[in-house]
Design a protein around this nucleic acid. Structure first.
Lengths: 146, 146
DNA sequence: GGTGATTAGTTTAATATCAAACGATATGAT
DNA sequence: ATCATATCGTTTGATATTAAACTAATCACC
């Protein structure tokens, strides 16, 4: 294949990948905003829901955002009564973030809805196609980790 | 396949798709920020570069952002001397946005660099794999258009 | 024990982003 | 001609996001 064709193939593939990711994101984020959560807020609640109480640094690492950003997101979640901060008595630099009862109830429901949206979305592809897509995406994504 | 397995396959595929898109975005956005452009600014310049002068509404539609957002992005591009606004004499509601000479020079260079980054990135996959990935992504993305 | 480096979290300044309200302009129906 | 409606762009208020400067607390090493 010529360089020109390789280039246009790569650019086309990239565009399609981006569009697919964007359209999938659109559908899941609709579920989140319908529940009054931003994408980041959902990410924080989901991390706490599946990993238990975490300090802000760990939350930032989990959802790939800066610690400064997490400060604000937790502020807003705290205002809405979904999480609470607790100063660690061992090492007073740490704030451990806990889900409140309201937070647990909300994320349980919204997470299930988001999962359902994803499953419905991916149902466009057969199981075999999903496996292939996953394998190729993984190969591509791995490069980023390096 | 059981419902449980279908679900975990779909969720895993979704995660991999998101990670691949994110890692590809990270690499292209590095090129843009290195040139002093935000992703949105790049999007606006690229639209003008390939489509010629456009009104703000069309730019918003092209890069899938709100018109309110475009107002700010154009403000910043104008401050940096990369674009200029021109009031349409036919219909004075419209502002046509033009690339300046500096803007044209910058986007030509940055666009080429971004393309090169994408091509390098996608080179992780063979031509056949790229075609398969593109086909599956397109199938998935199309659902969003509906 | 004290000092220097490190770490956790906050704050600040800049940009992004949307939805909704708004102002100016144009169009259409009567 | 006039008034209602629609359209383009701006503004506003809220949240997101980062990088960088900063504070508070801890740790490591001598």
């Amino acid at each position: 294949m010529s360089d020109t064709n390789l280039k246009s193939l790569a650019l086309g593939t990239y565009t399609k990948l981006m569009r697919a990711a964007e359209s999938a994101t659109n559908r899941t984020s609709k579920v989140m905003t319908a529940a009054g959560l931003t994408i980041s807020q959902f990410g924080v609640l989901e991390a706490l829901y599946h990993k238990g109480p975490l300090c802000q640094r760990d939350i930032a690492a989990k959802i790939l955002k800066s610690t400064g950003n997490i400060t604000l997101v937790i502020d807003n979640l705290e205002k809405n009564g979904l999480v609470r901060r607790e100063r660690d008595s061992e090492d007073r630099r740490f704030l451990t973030v806990h889900l409140t009862e309201a937070g647990t109830g909300l994320i349980a429901k919204v997470f299930a809805d988001v999962e359902a949206a994803i499953v419905a979305d991916l149902a466009t592809l057969t199981a075999e196609e999903q496996e292939t897509l996953g394998r190729l995406c993984k190969k591509l994504g791995l490069k980023g980790a390096a």
